[in-house]
Design a protein around this nucleic acid. Structure first.
Length: 118
DNA sequence: TCAGTGACTGACC
DNA sequence: GGGTCAGCCACTG
């Protein structure tokens, strides 16, 4: 059974996963959504990130879209803040895109325990 | 109450 | 191989 992770809890679930992302690694909105059993709700993940600004402990800069594009950088204080945060962690960013994205990609469904076990 | 919007994605021309 | 479109669903006015 797929416990459809919706409602307000969905946000908390997203935050929980994002906090598990190791420094120097990145993942995508869709990967997080898929891990939570809502593969079609990538936009919701993005919305959760938008709301995550209230919690500074959430590394929202480690979440990019499926091709490694820093689509959410405009939501950070500075237009280059997101890129700088990533570069500080060793991630190479060029033209708002993560270089060697596959190498840095971190899939929660492969590194964390299956969400259905929660 | 309802329609518009969005830090996305996959499918389909 | 690129552009377009529909679906996802919480939030806002």
């Amino acid at each position: 059974m797929k416990p459809k992770a919706t409602t307000l809890h969905f946000f908390q679930h997203v935050y929980t996963v994002v906090r598990q992302i190791p420094a120097g690694r990145v993942t995508s909105y869709g990967a997080i959504g898929r891990y939570l059993g809502a593969p079609q709700s990538a936009r919701m993940v993005g919305w959760a990130m938008n709301a995550s600004h209230q919690d500074p402990s959430i590394p929202a800069h480690r979440v990019v879209n499926r091709v490694g594009l820093l689509t959410g950088k405009h939501h950070f204080a500075g237009s280059t803040l997101m890129q700088q945060l990533l570069e500080n962690e060793g991630v190479v960013v060029k033209n708002d895109q993560v270089q060697s994205f596959e190498k840095y990609f971190w899939d929660p469904s492969q590194h964390l325990t299956p969400w259905e076990n929660h």
